[in-house]
């Protein structure tokens, strides 16, 4: 199985010229944020309904990457200050533009029409990022009684530190419980 010299040099000289449709994926390893850290790094803790999305190129740290801006309607404010407008743009890394796409694992996975709780970091009055990437995203799903409860984002990054982190604190909570928990953590 190990390449011999001739085979290796032959392989090195091989030429691949196909320029097929490409996309990008990624994944991350991140420190698990506590609820207090998540709140401290956020300006808004809100319930939203995603409306639509658009992908575009953006320069981040000198690198040209695809981002997706998701327009969301603010349904409720759970903690921190309410957004000034009834709608916001939430930016996540990755997306598709034409035949080129990028994907970064560990990002919030919003779905149109499906409500979520988001912790948001604004970079302008209308443009925000999800704080801690998927650590700041909690889809709302009904339990057996039809009560909406927070669940962890499906594509969390691998989290360092597994006790006392926001993801475990918030998962399974109702909105009322979450509001109370955030109020206590913010004091």
């Amino acid at each position: 199985m190990l390449l011999d010299r001739r085979r290796f040099l032959s392989a090195v000289g091989a030429w691949t010229s196909s320029t097929l449709v490409e996309r990008v994926a990624g994944a991350s390893l991140a420190r698990g944020l506590t609820l207090a850290e998540l709140l401290r790094a956020s300006a808004h803790a809100v319930v939203v309904t995603p409306l639509d999305a658009r992908s575009e190129w953006a320069v981040l740290g000198g690198q040209r990457r695809i981002v997706t801006d998701i327009r969301v309607r603010i349904e409720d404010t759970l903690a921190l200050s309410p957004p000034a407008d009834a709608e916001l743009l939430v930016r996540v890394l990755g997306g598709i533009i034409g035949t080129v796409g990028e994907r970064v694992d560990g990002q919030a996975t919003l779905r149109a029409g499906k409500p979520s709780t988001l912790f948001l970091t604004p970079v302008s009055p209308v443009l925000t990022y999800v704080t801690g990437a998927a650590q700041g995203h909690y889809p709302l799903l009904p339990d057996a009684s039809g009560v909406l409860r927070l669940r962890p984002s499906p594509q969390l990054p691998s989290l360092v530190r597994k006790t006392g982190i926001a993801v475990t604190e918030l998962s399974g909570r109702t909105l009322a419980e979450t509001r109370e928990l955030l109020g206590a953590a913010g004091r």
Binding site: L20, V24, G62, G101, R103, G132, A133
Partner: peptide
């Protein structure tokens, strides 16, 4: 600087680019 806003406290990020039709 970690260049990705919102991705606070990330240790590492791997970006994999591939052909969306074949998975290559």
């Amino acid at each position: 600087e970690w260049p990705y806003p919102g991705s606070i406290d990330s240790y590492g990020l791997t970006t994999v680019r591939f052909n969306r039709e074949t998975g290559e």
